[in-house]
């Protein structure tokens, strides 16, 4: 395997600390940049993400042009708090309302393409406990300073929060190491150079994102990497060390569900590419067992595996962003 990419396309956020330099590069290229935060009940963390990014990368340095929150129907105060601190807040169901409604992170990311206006879009998870503006400028650095790079993914040291506010210094990334990395090693060894393929922080040019499909759930990160790799190759991708990100620890059963969806997404992509044959149908249900009153009870979770098509094929999107093109015709 050629591991040259790891050396040439891996950066550290500190290489892009000169935010004024990034603003100059952005202005020279005549670009606009949008930040999208997908949310579902994130009232504890949403305000600080908005505040820090807005203060440092909008008010003090005009690097980011808009902050957009796309919410999946939070039942807490996420939307109200986000509005209080100045984000543009949308409910996913209100965007492109003629389309069938789905709920999931991938759905929010996909719909964000329609409501944002940036040439570059930065996606950050809304549950980052140690948010810092490096999460945004670190991802934007390679895109603004290296013309060949169109998509940037984050990696970091991942301490995990355990119990009530206790921290374990190492850990996390279990689905990556137990599911994604073995799959990449078997089928796409080159992609193993992406150190944290499931990280929820990435940025890229609109004309990359609007040409790829978005699974509505957990599989969105895996499919995004596979689709960009297939269409444009590894060279357009980069990864940035963001130092440290503290995240919620999920129990094994929740990770099992995540692994189920990722595996399915992966197999579907392989089938589409004609790289494998499947002689039996795949099921949509993840079956886990719980011991309830000395009896094992099946806990079945259904994952339909819905996927949104490339946004470029959506008529409303083309009307908004490419009004000069003929209706129904891709630009």
């Amino acid at each position: 395997m050629n591991d040259g990419w790891l050396k040439t396309n891996t950066f550290h956020y500190s290489e892009f600390r000169d935010v004024a330099g990034l603003v100059a590069a952005k202005q020279k290229k005549g670009l606009t940049i949008s930040l999208c935060l997908p949310t579902l009940n994130e009232e504890r963390t949403i305000a600080k993400e908005i505040l820090i990014i807005k203060s440092e990368l909008m008010l003090r340095h005009p690097l980011i042009d808009e902050i957009v929150v796309v919410d999946s129907g939070s039942t807490d105060s996420t939307r109200e708090i986000a509005k209080t601190y100045g984000a543009d807040v949308y409910e996913a169901n209100d965007i492109l309302p003629r389309m069938e409604r789905y709920q999931g992170k991938g759905e929010n990311l996909w719909k964000a393409l329609y409501i944002t206006r940036g040439d570059i879009i930065v996606y950050l998870d809304a549950d980052i406990k140690n948010i810092h503006h490096r999460f945004a400028y670190g991802l934007l650095g390679p895109l603004l300073l290296h013309d060949r790079i169109k998509y940037v993914k984050a990696f970091y040291d991942r301490p995990i929060a355990i119990g009530k506010n206790k921290l374990r210094p190492t850990g996390g990334g279990r689905v990556t190491e137990l599911v994604v990395r073995p799959l990449f090693s078997i089928f796409f060894p080159e992609l193993t150079q992406i150190l944290q393929p499931l990280s929820g922080e990435y940025a890229g040019y609109r004309d990359i994102f609007d040409q790829i499909p978005f699974p509505i759930g957990y599989g969105v990160e895996t499919s995004m990497i596979l689709d960009i790799y297939r269409r444009w190759g590894l060279e357009v991708m980069a990864q940035v060390d963001l130092d440290r990100r503290i995240h919620r620890n999920q129990d094994t059963k929740a990770l099992g569900k995540m692994a189920f969806v990722i595996l399915k997404t992966f197999i579907n992509r392989k089938l589409e590419l004609g790289l494998i044959d499947l002689h039996e149908k795949m099921y949509d249900e993840m079956i886990q067992y719980n011991l309830v009153r000395e009896e094992y009870k099946a806990n079945i979770t259904r994952f339909e595996g819905h996927e949104r098509p490339p946004m470029i094929g959506i008529e409303e999107y083309r009307e908004k962003f490419f009004p000069e093109t003929t209706q129904g015709e891709s630009p």
Binding site: S77, I81, Y85, A161, N165, L167
Partner: peptide
């Protein structure tokens, strides 16, 4: 050092260790 210094901002308050 081993606790999560997780700060939370509400509409009128900030909370954290």
């Amino acid at each position: 050092k081993d606790i999560v210094y997780n700060y939370s901002v509400g509409e009128n308050t900030i909370t954290g260790p």
